[in-house]
Simulated scan of single mutants.
Amino acid sequence: MTGTVVRVKGIKRYFEPKTGRWYAYHRKSGRRLKAEFGTSEFFAELEAINAESKGLEARPGTLGALIESYRASAGFQSLKTRTKADYQKVLDYLRPLAPSPLVELTQGWVARLRDKTFAKKKRKFANYVLTVLSILFEHGIEQEMMASNPVSKVKRVRKPTDAPEANRPWMDFERDAVAAALPAHMALPVALMMYCGLDPQDALQLPRTAVSKGQLDTRRGKTGVPLWVPLPAPVIEALAAEPKHLTTTLTLCANSYGKPWTVSGFRASWRPIRQKLEEGGKVQPGLTLKGLRHTVATILREMGKDYATIAEMLGQKTEAMAKHYSRRADTSKKMAETVSDFDAEVNRRKTKTV
């Protein structure tokens, strides 16, 4: 029996690899529908949004008009699906403020919005709201809807000084402990992160065709920068040890059921392994999969590689990010030299005194 194809006007659907789910957005309002596509609850929710949106066109000169203009622009339309979805979360958050006249959106207005958002949504989202607002206002300047960007002089919410370092590099003993504790179906993706510096999402979504004759040929998902990397020996070993029932998937890595991983699914499997190792004192707190990119950058810098080489290895567009990722190696080397010089100076003074 042939399945029925459901086509719904005014709806934009997209697949989110991070969650492994399909989502639907109402084109006119930009709102995401919560109900499962095609269900009676979905059509009821859609009808309610249509009724709410009917006749509610944004008034010229308001934040709502600016948002509509930006969502229809080439700049927004050319964004990757994942980035659009991230921006849309902020635009949804700003919807109650849509009637606000643009002339009233001052630096103080933005600062107060930042503080309220921080109180409700914490630091990361508050800063992301500032980022998206700044993009909106730059679009407004380009379209001659406003004269200046009120976000430009508003400070981001700073990270607390006592907050733990995010995505810190792994220590050598931690890499060894994790590698020994991983089940067979998790060894290959972690090896790709650990030795090739791939983002978790890139490693999990890597097509099987990306590896040929001991060479990795792909692009970094976030930047689109090409990556051509000879596979390190540990990755080749992980490929050779891959369970045979996992070698038929379109993606290079697969879960224990032989299905492609989702990022959320892999993290759910990784979490108890990390927690058990922490409890056993085999790794220190703060271990993250993303930290493996920092680990690769740190090791390369300790080897004396320049920032351009590190950026190329990690698929980064600028050397600035390579410097950020390897900052611990630079600090460690500088302090080692400083302490050595200090020790020599103290000993010299001691000898002189005697």
Rank of each mutant, 00 (worst) to 15 (best):
G3E: 09
E345L: 14
D343R: 14
F42S: 07
R208W: 01
G108S: 08
V6G: 00
A85F: 08
T262E: 06
A119E: 15
R158N: 08
Q316T: 03
P60N: 02
E52M: 08
R123L: 11
W109R: 06
L246P: 13
G108I: 01
S29G: 12
N50L: 12
G214S: 13
L102E: 05
F137R: 02
M193H: 04
K116A: 10
D176A: 13
V129L: 07
R114E: 10
P260A: 04
C253E: 11
I141R: 13
Q77N: 14
F137G: 07
E16K: 13
R208T: 09
T4V: 12
W270R: 00
I236K: 15
K124M: 06
G20E: 03
N50C: 13
V235P: 03
T131N: 04
T83A: 10
L287K: 03
R156D: 04
P207S: 00
V263R: 15
K54T: 14
G20N: 04
S256W: 15
L277P: 06
L204F: 05
T223Q: 09
E302T: 04
R95H: 05
E47N: 10
K350G: 03
Q275H: 10
I11C: 07
K120R: 15
Y87H: 11
L136G: 01
R274F: 02
D172Q: 14
E57V: 09
A119N: 07
E279K: 15
T351N: 12
A177V: 02
A166E: 15
V339F: 11
F42C: 12
E104N: 13
P272T: 00
A48Q: 15
A177H: 11
F37L: 10
T248V: 13
T106V: 12
T209Q: 15
A44S: 14
K290C: 07
T4P: 02
D341A: 14
Y128E: 11
I11Y: 10
K124W: 07
Y325G: 00
F266Q: 11
R114Y: 07
L231K: 10
T209G: 14
T353G: 06
E345S: 12
M194S: 14
A320C: 00
T309G: 00
I135A: 11
T318G: 00
Q88L: 15
